[in-house]
């Protein structure tokens, strides 16, 4: 450019001296005010008991002690409970996910009466594990409905499904009751996840010639990943908390970890061992959540902001 003509007159240019930077009206105070009560409340009911619980577990009448932890570890019930809890989770969760996925895919086909089905399948959502145990007790009790049916059919008159002699059937009863009660939660999460998958994807895959199973494997399941992940973490941690089902069905014949906290606290009146077991469960839950989040991290989701 050899010459510098004036630019066309636009708005009057900003004067270099700006009015002093105004105090920015931020919304932080309002938001903090709204959030603070819940934070304080949760901290009080969460962090405080943890501190107290650790104190309970590692101190005795005269200073710090490992006696309670030792007593916990020396108790055969503790190891049995740990084994049962682990076994229940390992066997139950794959079954539950397969079952819930099947149910969700059935509903996706929109059969007639599907809203009725959905209602019935969701009822256990609001049923506690104690109630579920009692419901299945009516079936598995020695003089319960299962044996009655068998008797009606002339297939023997009574098998002690829940007796401590019959480890396998006892486990089976607890497993069935839990499958019945807790699959609804997975179902609801999966159904919600399926609803968020646009049907276009599925239809596009169908147009390009994918069979149902190919679509399921390559289109639907990958899209469901976040939902399944959430359900998995939630179910595992809730699985760790199961106890009243077993209590209702078998008493202490099939001990579970949380049941042991209850036993030590209520029946054996030893809050220190009870607190120790509670902390073990807490640590296990935390560990599970961390492991899941690491292992299941979606490679496509990392690095994307919010």
């Amino acid at each position: 450019m050899t010459t510098a003509p004036d630019p066309a007159p636009t708005e009057p240019k900003a004067t270099p001296t700006r009015p002093g930077r105004r105090r920015r009206r931020t919304r932080v105070p309002t938001a903090a005010l709204l959030v603070a009560p819940s934070v304080l409340f949760l901290a009080a009911l969460f962090l405080w008991p943890i501190v107290v619980g650790v104190g309970q577990a590692v101190t005795g009448t005269d200073g710090p002690t490992l006696a309670h932890l030792r007593r916990m570890l020396d108790d055969p019930y503790f190891w049995q409970a740990t084994r049962n809890t682990a076994l229940l989770i390992v066997v139950l969760i794959p079954l539950q996910f397969a079952f819930a996925l099947t149910m969700a895919l059935l509903l996706r086909e929109r059969p007639r009466l599907s809203s009725f089905y959905f209602y019935v399948w969701c009822v256990p959502l609001a049923i506690s594990d104690l109630a579920a145990g009692l419901v299945w007790l009516s079936i598995f009790a020695d003089r319960g409905y299962l044996n009655s049916v068998l008797a009606h059919l002339g297939l023997g008159d009574g098998y002690a499904w829940l007796s401590y002699d019959n480890d396998a059937t006892m486990f089976l009863a607890v497993l069935l009751a839990e499958l019945w009660r807790a699959t609804s939660l997975v179902l609801v999460i999966v159904v919600a996840g399926l609803q968020n998958i646009p049907r276009d994807y599925d239809e596009a895959a169908a147009v390009f010639g994918a069979t149902y199973w190919q679509r399921l494997r390559h289109v639907i399941l990958p899209q469901l990943r976040p939902s399944l992940q959430v359900a998995l973490i939630l179910r595992t941690i809730l699985g760790l908390q199961t106890f009243a089902v077993a209590q209702a069905l078998t008493g202490r014949s099939f001990p579970l970890l949380v049941g042991e906290t209850y036993q030590w606290y209520v029946t054996l009146q030893n809050e220190r061992v009870s607190a120790a077991i509670a902390l073990v469960i807490l640590l296990m839950s935390l560990g599970t959540a961390v492991v899941y989040l690491r292992v299941l991290r979606d490679p496509a989701a990392t690095g994307s902001g919010r």
């Binding site: 959030v35 934070v39 949760l42 009911l45 969460f46 405080w48 008991p49 943890i50 501190v51 107290v52 619980g53 104190g55 309970q56 973490i233 939630l234 941690i237 760790l240 908390q241 949380v258 906290t261 606290y265 809050e271 009870s274 607190a275 077991i277 509670a278 469960i281 807490l282 839950s285 935390l286 959540a289």
Partner: peptide, 24 residues
């Protein structure tokens, strides 16, 4: 962080804290 905190409290079995809570 707040949402993370919520998820954490949701994911951890707070019920087992009933034992120390009873003392409190």
């Amino acid at each position: 962080p707040y949402q993370l905190f919520l998820l954490l409290t949701r994911a951890l079995p707070i019920v087992v804290l009933s034992v120390p809570l009873a003392r409190v």
